[in-house]
Amino acid sequence: MTPVATTFHAPPRVGHRRSTSEPPAVRRLLIGTALVFMALFLVLPLVFVFTQAFAKGIGFYFKTLGDPNAWSAIKLTFTAAGIAVPLNCVFGVAAAWAIAKFDFPGKNILLTLIDLPFSISPVIAGLIYVLVFGANGWLGVKFPQFADWLVDHHLKIIYAAPGIILATLFVTVPFIARELIPLMQAQGRSEEEAARVLGASGWQTFWRVTVPNIKWGLIYGVILCNARAMGEFGAVSVVSGHIRGQTDTIPLHIEALYDDYNFTGAFAVASLLALLALVTLGLKSWVEYKNARLYETEIPQ
């Protein structure tokens, strides 16, 4: 009798290895390759940016960042992101809500339109605004009175802050909507339907049921959207006019310093952008961590 039991309790040693694991040598090779790759293409450039930034000492670093032109670039970047991100937030939630919770004609067209900025080169996006709002653009040709009114009131669109904000808005449109649509589709409509049946109004349903469900997805989308808004170069470069201290954003100011042969200065400002990216990344990981915990605690219930 016992021999049978022993074979059941002690299966052969070979069977101990799970079918998904590889021999240790292969495992080490794969992990090693990934780490070397990461070090070469991610960590090394980042370290390089910071060492170059401080190549002329900490005094030079803060002098570069305290320069009025640098300040203006920082302010402009934060203004553009500060306007583009909340607007995209409202639009993204509205679009995702409409797409995920309702059926209406033209839904696929709306989905395609949201993806448009992903598929268009940013330079083309910037050029569209020049062709529409430029001095010889569509607006001036079709509505000369309105264009003249803008000029008379010193309201500039391209080669000024509004153009930069428009270009930033355009390239960041998909980020929040794209983040929320799959999430809202996966959650389905049953909770909203239950709320309606229990007598909640549309507004109450949205604030008390929909928003709490998408909170972490929304924050994640905002972070991604903000990262892109601050780092955008191509579209903004076309509509900026590159006026120092006026229409240069942080990425454009880095280019200008680099072209001034001020490489250390360029890296100093670049390190600021890298720092913003690192903060964004940290926030993103924190959101992901929170998100995962949320699911873990919800499942046992």
Binding site: N136, Y159, I243, A256
Partner: peptide
């Protein structure tokens, strides 16, 4: 005096398009 620098042809194009 503010400055804007770039390739000469590109800069002329910007002025034509409304860079003041």
């Amino acid at each position: 005096v503010s400055q804007s620098h770039g390739g000469s042809g590109k800069q002329a194009q910007s002025v034509i398009n409304g860079l003041e």
